[in-house]
Amino acid sequence: MPPIRHSVFRPCIDLHDGQVKQIIGGTLSDTAPENLRTNFVASDSPGDFSRLYKKHNLGGGHVIKLGPGNDAAAREALGAWSGGLQIGGGINDENAMQWLDAGASKVIVTSYLFPNARFSLERLRKISSLVGKDKLVVDLSCRRRGERWVVAMNRWQDMTDMEISQDTLNLLSEYCSEFLVHAADVEGLCQGIDRDLVENLGKWAQIPITYAGGANDIDDLDLVERLSEGRVDLTYGSSLDIFGGTLVKFQSLVDRNMKALDLD
């Protein structure tokens, strides 16, 4: 059976201390900040990256605030392409509408849904009702535990009580329009995607899903498309030349998207 759709490249802007960075996800820690390992710190501004994505019509990307001190940088990125990028990191019922007003196409929510690391359906219903299902993305970034994937919150430091599964995605998809899934264990390592996770996401997907973590080759897009039957899109980070990488050229991904979307 041919893919229902083509997997495409979704861009990202990861913000840490007000700068665009590429960080090895598993090293983020409030208790041991000295362990943080950074692959790249951009000299270009968040707005520069946003304008680059706008130039090439790379919609559906995300801006992630990794901790405090990133609000101004996030507003700059959103302002450079109003309605073009999603925003995540510290999103809750009190600030979600402010970020939509600042130019976000959608808000991405994680930790707010897990008070004391336990999932709250009440909170999901509340924020979905507030912003609208079509404006809400649920971040299911996770860590692998044997043959399972457990959702991690607070910059991937704290494990929650939620396992990614068919039942989980079915429930959550009633209240949101997309999922974002960082495989935190391979994030920033450029050692390949979590194939099992991507394959399962493709089986379980009812709504669009963007996967991030480990992509290190242009052919990973074809791999994700094959594993997920085109139901999962892919984000590249540290392997990408615009983030100091040497393994994947940004222009190659732009060309691949144009081909997939028949825009050429």
Rank of each mutant, 00 (worst) to 15 (best):
A183G: 02
A183I: 00
D185M: 01
E187G: 14
E187R: 15
G188V: 08
L189A: 05
L189M: 12
L189I: 06
Q191S: 06
Q191N: 07
G192A: 06
G192V: 07
I193P: 05
R195A: 10
D196T: 01
D196A: 03
D196F: 00
V198F: 06
E199N: 11
E199D: 11
E199F: 08
N200M: 06
K203Q: 14
K203C: 11
A205M: 08
A205G: 07
I207C: 12
P208D: 03
I209P: 00
T210I: 15
Y211L: 10
G213W: 13
G213H: 12
D220W: 13
L221A: 12
V224L: 08
E225M: 02
R226N: 12
L227A: 06
S228A: 12
S228K: 04
S228Q: 05
S228E: 07
S228L: 03
E229Q: 14
E229I: 03
G230T: 01
G230P: 04
R231A: 10
D233R: 05
D233N: 15
T235W: 03
Y236G: 07
Y236A: 08
G237H: 05
S238H: 07
S238Y: 05
S238W: 07
S239V: 10
L240N: 11
L240Q: 10
D241S: 08
D241P: 02
D241R: 04
I242E: 12
I242D: 13
F243T: 06
G244H: 03
T246K: 15
L247M: 15
